[in-house]
Design a protein around this nucleic acid. Structure first.
Length: 523
RNA sequence: GGCAAGGUAGCUCAGCGGUUAGAGCGGGCGCUUCAUAAGCGCUAGGCCACAGGUUCGAAUCCUGUCCUUGCUACCA
């Protein structure tokens, strides 16, 4: 069975409304997914929400709702958000899905049966807020715990632990042997540093049902529920299983499989292992340490890459609901349009470093790059074609062909290596070149001299064809805008195949559509 | 404290041993009128954090200092 390019985002924890950070991660994953499809690959793009755990249970109680009702509302909000972002996701996982519960329980039972976990008593400090155990080492010099842990309580309880120590060596070797496993490289170094300088503590993978009911019951001991992170990571294989991926299904017995129902029709290709897990820098340890070990013990192949992005600030300050330093992506999209939002976050910030959102910066990129750069180029090119040639595309001319082809090559190479910011820079070098070309050839002067008719034809073809190629190159980033350029060119298809970014595909003697501003100026 | 990355034009950054240190944005000055008062061209602006050293030659390599950021730890 052939395998699709399988890309995932982190699943968002439903303890609040979607914000900029969520939106950013989903957009970069979507751009990569669309780029791969445009390159002709089969792609499966997964996103979703993480719903179990103490904080969700508490938030539901605070709002006087059942956890399920609370989650249903927020899951709907996140689904709406995904569509607001124009995501091309193929599925949307909820960790309260029946299929997910079935897979988590099956895998947990398998781990338990094969001796990878054990029961032990823990006595010590616990932070309900972070759902994590604390030790004396977590104390600050004055004896208190960091405020980020909230109220810290002392408790003594039994739990099940997942053995990690014996996995440290092969994991280091795997990371060293696979330089792209964790990207960018400095994140990889951090993980190696962590693994080389510390002995991994076994991971507590349950919580007593006595104090937390909002979780997946542990199959081998009903007095516990599954730790939320252990549950959450498994989403990446739940969905392949539910679509009939043989790699995962082989781990399940017949009754597990029947619990996957109602099952969508199986896909004609495999999904696991994932090609890319897109995540934020805060959850790198879960994805680069715990998750590979979980997979190894389940005898499943490891994902190809964990792609770690940075965080946004606003005006140089940390985003924070309590101080009101926030960016509301939905408001931005409503005011400026979806493609403007997608453009800004990808163009402003490379995948890896932290970035800084400023409203002035957003406005500047919108005006200079989208309205005056790309938008005006398409508008002036098509307006002249309409005015001087009645909208009829002249015969092919290759004056800009080699420059366009160079940009196409660069853009494709950047897309293949997930260098999205660099890809946009390449594309805009063609925008700039075409604007310069208008200036140098001055078609508006040629139009005044009938003897220059042939030259004018050449110039107009070069401009129209450049606009068409720009549409194809931009499709992964700005799908709506790319579609508009195509329809203004009078092309009825969708510019979603990079193979069409080949010079000369625009055929002569067809009539273009009506030019209209792609990004209206806003003053 | 340890490890790592970095400190280059007003801003964001590239350059990482070899001609007068670059780009984009922003500033200033011109040109143009097809276009969303858009576009194009020219230009100003930098003890390349600081101090030593290696070298014929150093933003570029080495050492130290100061500062920023990330990870990690507080222990001999």
């Amino acid at each position: 069975m052939t395998k699709a390019f399988y890309i995932t985002t982190a699943i968002d924890y439903v303890n609040g409304q979607p914000h900029l950070g969520h939106g950013y991660e989903k957009v970069i994953a979507d751009v990569i997914a669309r780029a791969r499809r445009s390159l002709g690959e089969k792609v499966f793009f997964l996103t979703g929400v993480d719903e179990h755990g103490q904080k969700v249970q508490q938030a539901a109680v605070n709002e006087g709702k059942s956890p399920q009702a609370y989650c249903d509302e927020l899951a709907a909000a996140f689904k709406d958000f995904a569509s607001k972002l124009g995501l091309s996701n193929d599925d949307f996982i909820r960790t309260t899905d029946r299929r997910h519960e079935a897979v988590v329980q099956a895998l947990l039972a398998k781990l338990h049966a094969s001796g990878h976990c054990y029961k032990a008593t823990y006595k010590g400090f616990y932070s309900p807020k972070e759902e994590t155990f604390l030790t004396e080492r977590d104390r600050r010099p004055d004896g208190t715990f960091d405020p980020s842990y909230g109220e810290v309580i002392e408790l003594e309880e039994d739990n099940y632990y997942f053995r990690l120590k014996q996995h440290q060596r092969w994991l280091i070797e795997h990371i060293e042997a696979n330089p792209d496993f964790i990207a960018p490289p400095y994140r990889r170094n951090e993980v190696l540093g962590l693994l080389n300088n510390n002995v991994l503590e076994d991971l507590c993978i349950t919580r007593p049902a006595a104090r937390l009911t909002w979780g997946i019951p542990t199959p081998f001991d009903p007095s516990f529920v599954t730790y939320v992170w252990f549950d959450a990571l498994i989403n990446y294989v739940t969905v392949p299983a539910s679509f009939g991926d043989s790699a995962i299904l082989s781990l399940l017995n017949e009754s597990d499989k029947s619990s996957l129902a109602p099952r969508p029709s199986p896909l004609p290709f495999g999904l696991w292992p994932a090609d890319i897990h897109v995540i934020g820098k805060d959850i790198i340890k879960f994805h680069a340490v715990f998750w590979p070990i979980m997979l190894k013990t389940m005898e499943l192949p490891l994902p190809k890459q964990i792609l770690v992005h940075g965080f946004w600030q606003k005006d140089g300050q940390k985003l924070s609901k309590s101080t009101g330093n926030i960016v509301d992506p939905i408001a931005v999209i409503d005011e400026w349009g979806l493609d403007a939002f997608r453009y800004y976050v990808v163009r402003e910030l490379d995948i890896g470093p932290d970035g800084n959102w400023t409203d002035a910066g957003f406005r500047a990129r919108y005006q200079a790059e989208l309205a005056n750069g790309l938008g005006n180029l398409v508008n002036r090119s098509l307006s002249m074609l309409k005015r001087y040639r009645n909208g009829l595309v002249p015969a092919r001319s290759d004056e800009l062909a080699s420059e366009a082809e160079k940009v196409i090559r660069e853009t494709v190479a950047n897309l293949r290596s997930n260098q999205l910011q660099a890809a946009l820079q390449s594309v805009w070098s063609l925008v700039a070149r075409a604007n310069q070309y208008v200036d140098h050839t001055a078609p508006f002067k040629l139009a005044k001299d009938p003897a220059q008719a042939k030259r004018l034809d050449e110039v107009l073809y070069n401009l129209a064809e450049t606009c068409r190629i720009l549409a194809v190159l931009l499709w992964p980033f700005l799908p709506a805008t790319a579609g508009k350029i195509y329809s203004q060119l009078g092309l009825s298809e969708t510019p979603d195949k990079l193979a069409d970014a080949a010079w000369g595909r625009l055929s002569a003697d067809r009539t273009i559509g009506e030019p209209a501003a792609l990004f209206p100026r806003r003053d």
